[in-house]
């Protein structure tokens, strides 16, 4: 199963890049230095293996010249003249400006073991759906190195790259306990989220809602819904407090997140959160998510032919907006905010 079954469009391009024909036709680096740099700017092996894992449900359409179409699109990239072959690619996505004035290079050559990768890519390249809808973008400046920008300094990267992943990558040194977190939470967070993270008015509730996800109007909190603790740490540290973001130290963040866990009854009151204990916490809904499966679950039903005549005998009105009229300006508008906000 591909990790990205829904990205038919991007498959087409990636497939094109890895198709032997495309590589041969376009791999013409002019400057050896550029060629050397170009060698690293290629689709990684992981991409190729993902391609190879195209969902079994995607039957190759026998009449779709899948391998040929993306290859043509890449071939067409340097060629902006309105040749029949090129127009098919450029019409689908973009109008191009200035490409003709710029010496457009070919796609960089593929990875060190092209044979294996290309072989892996072939099944995907024959994915008829990908090819049909592919917008294998011909784009200006393909394969060129422009020598623009400057190298980012380590201090600069450190200042901006503060994100944290589920595996804990990005977590800084530090620690914080529940008690400290409670004090900080009262100062920084409680005006919106409540003293116990239960939420004030329409502001997000951070605690509670366990076992409500399959009920009407589920309550989605850090405890009941969020799959990863890293997300809470990352969001508190990068985006909170609301209106004064990015002021919390790592220790303060550890403490606040520890308190949020405590308010969800997920840790005891003597809990200390740090890089080590982070790895021991698993949020209850970690297994509650599936990757987008619309293509396999819904598409068979939603690609049936549409009825045009005699589609049904009777039509009844089943619901009317005027019964619950919450349109701005209508009398009941003010009452509509009883529910949790749609968006925050």
């Amino acid at each position: 199963m591909s990790r990205f079954p829904e990205i038919a469009l991007s498959f087409a391009l990636a497939a094109a890049m890895l198709t032997p024909a495309a590589a041969q036709d376009t791999a013409i680096p002019v400057d050896p230095a550029e060629a050397a740099q170009a060698d690293v700017t290629v689709a990684p092996p992981e991409v190729a293996s993902d391609l190879a894992e195209t969902p079994a449900g995607d039957e190759p359409a026998p009449d779709a010249p899948a391998a040929a179409e993306p290859a043509e699109a890449v071939d067409a990239a340097p060629d902006v003249a309105p040749t029949p072959g090129a127009s098919a690619a450029s019409d689908t996505t973009v109008q191009q400006e200035g490409a003709g004035e710029i010496p457009v290079e070919a796609e960089p050559e593929t990875v060190a073991e092209p044979g294996a990768d290309q072989a892996d890519a072939e099944p995907a390249a024959e994915d008829g759906e990908a090819a049909e809808t592919g917008t294998a973008s011909a784009y200006p400046g393909a394969g060129m190195v422009h020598q623009l920008g400057r190298e980012a300094l380590p201090e600069e990267v450190a200042a901006w790259d503060t994100d944290v992943r589920p595996d804990g990558q990005g977590l800084p040194e530090g620690s914080g306990d529940v008690e400290t977190g409670e004090t900080l939470f009262a100062d920084y967070c409680a005006s919106c989220h409540g003293d116990f993270a239960e939420g004030v008015d329409n502001w997000p509730k951070l605690a509670g809602g366990m076992d409500t996800l399959d009920r009407e109007d589920p309550l989605k909190t850090v405890g009941s819904y969020w799959p990863y603790l890293s997300t809470a740490w990352d969001y508190v540290h990068r985006s909170m407090p609301f209106g004064s973001a990015q002021i919390l130290t790592p220790d303060e963040t550890y403490a606040m997140v520890a308190y949020i866990l405590y308010s969800n009854d997920l840790v005891d009151d003597d809990f200390v959160l740090n890089r080590e204990t982070f790895a021991e916490v698993e949020l209850p809904n970690v297994d509650g998510f599936i990757e987008d499966d619309r293509d396999t679950v819904e598409l068979p039903e939603f690609t049936k032919e549409a009825c045009m005549e005699n589609c049904k005998e009777t039509v009844e009105i089943t619901r009317r907006a005027t019964i619950l009229d919450v349109t701005p300006g209508s009398p009941d508008d003010a009452d509509a905010g009883d529910d949790a906000p749609m968006m925050d």
Partner: peptide, 29 residues
């Protein structure tokens, strides 16, 4: 990177909870 970051906007928000309580993520299209 080599893994998704699972940020707030792709976990707690912009995910689609189905009737049985499981939720779809990465519903980009």
């Amino acid at each position: 990177g080599d893994q998704p970051w699972e940020t707030r906007e792709e976990t707690s928000k912009y995910t689609d909870t189905l009737a049985d309580g499981t939720s779809r993520k990465w519903t980009w299209v």
